[in-house]
Write a protein that binds this DNA or RNA. Structure first.
Length: 211
DNA sequence: CACCAGGCAAGTA
DNA sequence: TACTTGCATGGT
């Protein structure tokens, strides 16, 4: 247990409270959101997901069978829509080829093995794979994103250019492997990042972590 | 107007 | 291996 990591979590939780990311969403909706949110503001992703939902495409089978142009038209608000359409389709091919389109079967696979399989899907990198594992499938995997690295490096807990795995290991080797903790911690880091730890930093002085 | 957002893959050297 | 670039919409 790393005292400092626990302390940071407590301060963030005290300052912001529970973030309840992806509450009441189906695992499949979370997976789609994880792909659509790549380098994209969440508000834009919500519009795209709402469009898919309105046209009843938020199920593996329906999205798998949907025309390419229809998908790209519906997800347009989330940006990079041509690439993301291809990525959604790559993911669906994986889901049907490997698990008969069944999220339940996919969830039953060994976590480390599943992570490797996800990383082999074109369009799914480390953060997206881990987001799917943690937020959709409730596997105890810590999600690292740009904010996580920026915050931790500014607090000198990692190097500025630390690798993804290195950053992830810091959390996973020094915290209890609890889904709920990993879920809230990552969401809280994003919350802190948005408000107090932007690239060009407006409000770093007011940071609840106290610099 | 510039910059940023819950990344990733492909190309180059 | 280590950089660079394209991808695209919408908010500040």
């Amino acid at each position: 247990m790393n005292r400092e990591l626990v302390l940071i979590y407590r301060k963030l939780y005290a300052a912001f409270g529970p973030q309840h990311w992806w509450p009441g969403k189906t695992p499949f909706e979370v997976m789609v959101g994880a792909i659509l949110t790549q380098n994209t503001a969440w508000s834009n992703v919500e519009k795209a997901v709402a469009n898919l939902k309105h046209d009843k495409l938020l199920s593996p089978l329906k999205l798998h069978q949907a025309p390419v142009r229809k998908i790209s038209r519906l997800i347009k608000p989330s940006g990079y829509y041509n690439i993301k359409t291809a990525r959604l389709r790559e993911f669906l091919s994986f889901l049907f080829n490997g698990y008969q389109g069944s999220i339940a079967k996919m969830s039953g696979a060994n976590t480390r093995q599943l992570r490797r399989q996800l990383l082999a899907v074109k369009g799914i990198g480390e953060e997206t794979a881990d987001s799917i594992l943690l937020y959709a499938l409730r596997k105890p995997v810590f999600v690292v994103d740009a904010y996580t690295r920026r915050i931790l490096s500014r607090h000198r807990l990692i190097k500025k250019d630390a690798a993804y795995q290195e950053t992830q290991n810091l959390f996973m080797e020094n915290l209890e492997n609890q889904v709920q903790l990993f879920n809230e911690y990552h969401a809280l880091l994003v919350k802190l990042g948005k408000e107090f730890c932007r690239k060009t930093n407006p409000r770093c002085r007011e940071c609840p972590l106290g610099k």
